Measured scan of single mutants.
Amino acid sequence: DRIFMTRTEALEFLLKAHQTAVDKIGHPSHKQTPADHAAIEALDRLLLDVRARRVDQFQINASAAQIIVTD
Rank of each mutant, 00 (worst) to 15 (best):
D1I: 01
D1C: 08
D1L: 00
D1H: 02
R2L: 14
R2Y: 14
R2S: 10
I3S: 03
F4K: 05
F4C: 10
F4W: 07
F4V: 10
F4E: 06
M5G: 01
M5I: 03
M5C: 03
M5R: 01
T6Q: 03
R7N: 04
R7C: 04
R7W: 14
R7A: 04
T8F: 08
E9P: 00
E9D: 06
E9G: 04
E9L: 04
A10Y: 01
A10H: 10
L11R: 00
E12R: 08
F13L: 13
L14E: 00
L14P: 00
L15P: 00
K16W: 09
K16Q: 11
H18M: 15
H18N: 03
H18D: 00
H18R: 15
Q19P: 01
Q19M: 09
Q19I: 07
A21N: 03
A21L: 15
A21E: 09
V22T: 11
V22Q: 09
D23N: 12
K24S: 09
I25P: 03
I25A: 09
I25C: 04
I25H: 06
G26R: 14
G26W: 12
G26N: 15
G26A: 12
H27A: 12
H27F: 09
H27T: 13
P28Y: 01
S29H: 11
S29L: 12
H30D: 08
K31D: 10
K31G: 11
Q32S: 14
Q32K: 13
Q32N: 13
T33S: 13
T33K: 07
T33D: 11
P34A: 12
P34V: 10
P34K: 10
A35S: 11
D36T: 05
D36S: 06
D36M: 08
H37C: 07
A38N: 07
A38V: 09
A38T: 07
A38M: 10
A39D: 11
I40M: 08
I40A: 05
E41D: 11
E41K: 13
A42M: 15
A42L: 15
L43N: 00
L43S: 01
L43G: 00
D44R: 15
D44K: 15
R45N: 08
R45T: 07
L46S: 00
L47T: 04
L47D: 01
L47V: 06
L47E: 02
L47P: 00
L48I: 14
L48S: 15
D49T: 02
D49M: 07
D49V: 03
R51T: 09
A52L: 14
A52N: 12
R54T: 08
V55G: 01
D56W: 09
D56N: 15
Q57T: 13
Q57F: 11
F58L: 02
F58H: 00
Q59F: 09
Q59G: 03
I60M: 08
N61V: 07
N61D: 12
N61Q: 09
A62V: 09
A62G: 15
A62F: 06
A62I: 10
S63G: 11
A64Q: 11
A64N: 09
A65T: 12
A65V: 15
Q66S: 09
I67R: 01
I67Q: 01
I67T: 02
I68V: 11
I68A: 03
I68F: 10
I68H: 07
V69Y: 02
T70G: 04
T70V: 13
D71Q: 06
